[in-house]
Design a protein around this nucleic acid. Structure first.
Lengths: 233, 233
DNA sequence: AATCATAACTTGTATATACAAGACAATATT
DNA sequence: AATATTGTCTTGTATATACAAGTTATGATT
């Protein structure tokens, strides 16, 4: 059974995401939400502070909870258009190498826990386009742990994080990312359709989830000539 | 009068920072902290979740609050050495252009609120070195608001965020950052002592503080050949 | 000696309540 | 008309309590 505060979070997130509450709007007051969910302020406030942390709302003493610009991801850098409001509209994803179960590569770019290493990993690569222009190449490694039928799922044009949440109740909790500017080598440059020595953002990340030892690692390359990477925190 | 939960946060932060509680240690249990501060779990938990958010601890159901690797900044990308544990030891900062009060530049890279624009800004540029090697050039703009004597302060080798906190009680609350990979132009390349067309990470950030309309903007360029930028979230 | 059950600890979720303090509109005063 | 006051709404801080559920060490059972 889902905790009540989690249900409040989920409900309000949906209402914000589908636009029932728009940017700048006030959410119902804490006392109103108490009545709606037949609970007390401590529980409602727990939900509201989670929404504050993840950037859905800001709170003003004496005034209320104000819906802010929807911010996705937890501070994970994500691709954004230079033109504001481009959203995810033109963003498409193609799988280059379909998910397969395999051992972790020798000399993997992050240190692995013993249990994690023993589980092996699921590996796949994706190329993301905006308006038919390849912008981001991503190699992903997920610990092969309690993800039945994952390798046969269709990841094409679908959010990896959403699939993990909806089908496996796996949620991203925290993470770290390292960033470099590099000149693309021949292979990467070809994939992203840029000249060799074109500057690219290179990132390596580890994302931890609510499931013990289930981490998501990725190494990615991004062409930021016309678009950029952005995050909120 | 400071709220009690804030005192608990401050106390625990200090104990973690000065090493009384080291990485991997367990903090005193919630009930122990209740006795220490003569309060209840709701208040203690409010403090502990703040410490969780800012990355000082992680929490394990049934086990306790575990001190984690000290993480600076809120998810703001910061410079890290390739060799783990390099910390801030070799990091020095020199001021290229001392802080001066001025109007906001025309066509500033972020949209400004009316009140903010009216206040003008404090502008300065810094160059940060690691082991005598210039790595990061930063142009900073701070809203010129309730910061008396700021322009005469010595920023050399001192954390801007610490000065703002200690002398003006200004704390970073949230922010956003945009990231590009670029080839450095002549001027920047000279400052960072790299060849023209050397790839650099370029970032533009806006950091919001607990003071209304007091924001910190910066535009920075970083040579990631030997080091990289990293953040936790 | 290895396994199982239990007890005592921990954090997680929740109810019920109280007063402080900021925001704001309606009302009273000047 | 402009200003001050008050009342009511909001969120912020706090106490007191209860039970659920994860973790671990201790002791009983096999």
């Amino acid at each position: 059974m889902m905790p009540l505060y989690q249900k409040v979070i989920d409900d309000l997130k949906i209402l914000i995401e589908k636009g029932t509450y728009k940017k700048g709007d006030l959410l119902p007051s804490e006392n109103d939400l108490c009545k709606t969910y037949n609970t007390t302020r401590v529980t409602i406030r727990q939900a509201l502070s989670a929404l504050t942390i993840s950037g859905y709302i800001t709170r003003r003493h004496g005034k209320g909870s104000i819906v802010s610009e929807p911010k996705k991801g937890l501070g994970i850098l994500s691709l954004r258009g230079v033109t504001a409001g481009i959203g995810d509209k033109g963003l498409t994803t193609s799988i280059l190498e379909k998910p397969i179960r395999q051992d972790w590569p020798a000399g993997f770019f992050y240190d692995l826990e013993e249990e994690e290493r023993a589980s092996g990993c699921i590996f796949f690569t994706r190329l993301r386009y905006l308006d038919k222009m390849p912008l981001l190449y991503e190699e992903t490694f997920i610990t092969d742990l309690s993800l039945p039928r994952f390798t046969s799922r269709n990841l094409e044009n679908r959010s990896l994080f959403k699939i993990l949440d909806e089908h496996y109740q796996v949620k991203i909790k925290e993470g770290e990312q390292k960033i470099w500017a590099i000149n693309g080598d021949k292979e990467i440059s070809k994939l992203l359709d840029v000249k060799t020595n074109h500057p690219l953002v290179h990132m390596k990340r580890r994302l931890k989830t609510n499931v013990k030892n289930l981490n998501i690692y990725s190494s990615l390359y991004c062409n930021t000539e016309e678009y950029f990477l952005q995050d909120y925190f």
